[in-house]
Design a protein around this nucleic acid. Sequence first.
RNA 1: GGUGGAUUCGUCUAACGGUUAGGACACAAGAUUCUCAAUCUUGCAAUAGGGGUUCGAUUCCCCUAUCCACUACCA
Length: 487
Amino acid sequence: MSETVRTRFAPSPTGYMHIGNLRTALFAYLFAKSQNGKFILRIEDTDQGRYVEGAVDVIYETLKTARLYHDEGPDIGGEYGPYVQSERKGMYRQFALELVEKGAAYYCFCQKGEKESESMEGYDRHCRNLSKEEVEAQLAAGKPYVIRQRIPLEGSTSWNDLVYGEISVENSTLDDQVLLKSDGMPTYNFANVVDDHLMNITHIIRGSEYLSSNPKYLLLYDAFGWERPQYIHLPIINGKNPDGSISKLSKRHGAVSFQALVEQGYLPEGIINYIALLGWSPKTEQEIFSMDGLIAQFSIAGVHKSPAVFDYQKLDWVNGQHISMMDPEEFIRMALPYARIEGTFLEPKWRKLASLLQSRISKLSEIPEKISFLFQLPDYDTELFVNKKNKSTLETSAAILRQAIDCLSAVQDWSEETLLGTLTELAGRLGLKLGPLTWPVRLSLSGLLATPGGAIDILYLLGREESLKRLENGIRRLENKNLVDEK
RNA sequence: GGUGGAUUCGUCUAACGGUUAGGACACAAGAUUCUCAAUCUUGCAAUAGGGGUUCGAUUCCCCUAUCCACUACCA
């Protein structure tokens, strides 16, 4: 009978979800789900000094919008609870004492920082060999203490990482790290091991920054006589600095929290898709994935070791792919808050606008700038009427606009079909292709070199009255320009 | 300083020890289009350096260089 795979995501409540953490959560989720296993959420809040109001809710919220659903956690329970370390604090002491009993840990009465950091060599093991009597005496005197791990002085510790392969470290290079702090709380390093064991975690998935300290965790498992879990260390995510150099992804590289990216108009599925590709390859040429697709394709064999650089351009592309794949109704629902349109997007002409936008944006926040011309005609330079490709000049533009106004003001049924028919007919009459005709029209309507949709679309969107007004305005601008020139 | 890790186009990445080193983003050119996108075509662009092992090395080994992480009573 094979053991069920159990992975966990163990964030600290810091108030935001860094992309690197989210990627770790994603891989832990994907690995578990691809193995029909369980994904557990545990909150690591042993540092009382860092408590941030509402930070835990941010974690729930993020996992929910990212669609990383956990099977056990503080909010939904499970048989291995509690899932918040501060609620488990009573249980760590006995494990620390067990290690003292076994000789794998010892009391230390040194003041914080007293015997270390001078030569970058860590704690000097001052209390490592105190006699039992000395310890008793100090304890009886009520002296504050910590419990430290007694690292073997010789030998080496090694393991076979599922990503990095065989790694071996000399014990002599390891530190007698603190397990239980003087306030009675466990350190992260200790609580982590104890909880992972108690919660029956089978695969530890985390960033490669823990690679160096892993031997210390292994020695703890060994000292307890516990079975070691499997380890899957993930390459870190870097960011590119303005000067081109690379360093760990941080705020100066732009938005690095999940919430910030969502606020910028990225889709959760777009973000997830993109970060899945950082440090992992499906080994096929597919790049666009749904969550289910990721679960189906995910394999540790595709995870690689070297760090990846977060690239906003590719994120934009991936996100744009997801936007254009969206169900139109869903797109409308998502786009609405960005559109500043009265009423709903459900009117036919706004639906039309939505469909024009859907293939043209890579993130939702681009919507306002793309459509603002519809609500207010921007001031524009008449030079824009000049377009070589469409053989458009100031003179031809004015003439065309007059003709267009004549035709369009006669149009009764202001529909796209009729508008197109009318302008096509006019173009034929003037011996022009549609392009040269619509250039000045679209320009007067929008004042912009580039717009979502062509002249016909914009006529339709603006409606008869506004359209004619803007066309007149275009002529006026051209005439004024001529007046100025003649002076 | 010590320890561990990493190194394929600018970026993300593919390649049982045998490929003209492939794909994607970005960039450039062209086609197409009522503008712009989208789409299609094409182009540009990489195995860090040096030694081995081998008939043959991006792939295995060693050295060098560079980068990263860890080296807290933070997580």
